[in-house]
Lab assay of single mutants.
Amino acid sequence: NARWTTEEQLLAVQAIRKYGRDFQAISDVIGNKSVVQVKNFFVNYRRRFNIDEVLQEWEAEHGK
């Protein structure tokens, strides 16, 4: 399903906090979204969920 429920959106943001840009890991956490759908989520929801800021926090924690 290409549509993202609110629950899936929140799950994705939590997974980004945990896995950074590991699209496969994020896809696995959500369970019903492909890697391509996760990559599209990054692009389409970047502003709404401040994904750049979430990634900066992840990179700071993981030394990337």
Rank of each mutant, 00 (worst) to 15 (best):
A2W: 10
A2D: 15
A2H: 13
A2L: 12
A2F: 15
R3V: 11
R3I: 15
R3W: 05
R3Y: 08
T5W: 01
T6Q: 12
T6S: 13
E8A: 02
L10A: 13
L10P: 01
L11A: 10
L11F: 13
L11W: 06
L11H: 05
A12E: 00
V13M: 15
Q14W: 11
Q14H: 11
Q14P: 00
Q14Y: 11
A15L: 14
A15I: 04
A15S: 07
I16G: 01
R17S: 03
R17E: 05
K18H: 05
G20P: 01
G20H: 00
R21S: 12
R21N: 13
R21M: 15
R21E: 14
D22C: 05
F23L: 13
Q24W: 05
Q24Y: 04
I26S: 03
I26L: 02
S27D: 00
S27G: 06
D28S: 11
D28N: 11
D28P: 01
V29I: 07
V29T: 09
I30R: 03
G31V: 12
G31E: 08
G31N: 04
G31F: 00
N32I: 10
N32P: 02
N32F: 07
K33A: 02
K33L: 06
K33E: 01
K33V: 00
S34D: 14
S34C: 02
S34E: 07
V35I: 02
V36Q: 15
V36R: 13
Q37R: 01
K39S: 08
K39Y: 05
K39I: 03
N40M: 12
F41Y: 03
F41E: 00
F42D: 02
F42R: 02
V43T: 13
N44Y: 03
R46W: 12
R46C: 03
R46S: 13
R47E: 15
R47T: 14
R47S: 14
R48S: 11
R48N: 12
I51S: 05
D52M: 03
D52R: 04
E53S: 12
E53Q: 14
E53C: 10
E53G: 14
L55E: 11
L55K: 03
L55Y: 09
L55C: 02
Q56A: 15
W58F: 05
A60P: 08
A60M: 13
E61F: 06
E61H: 10
K64Y: 05
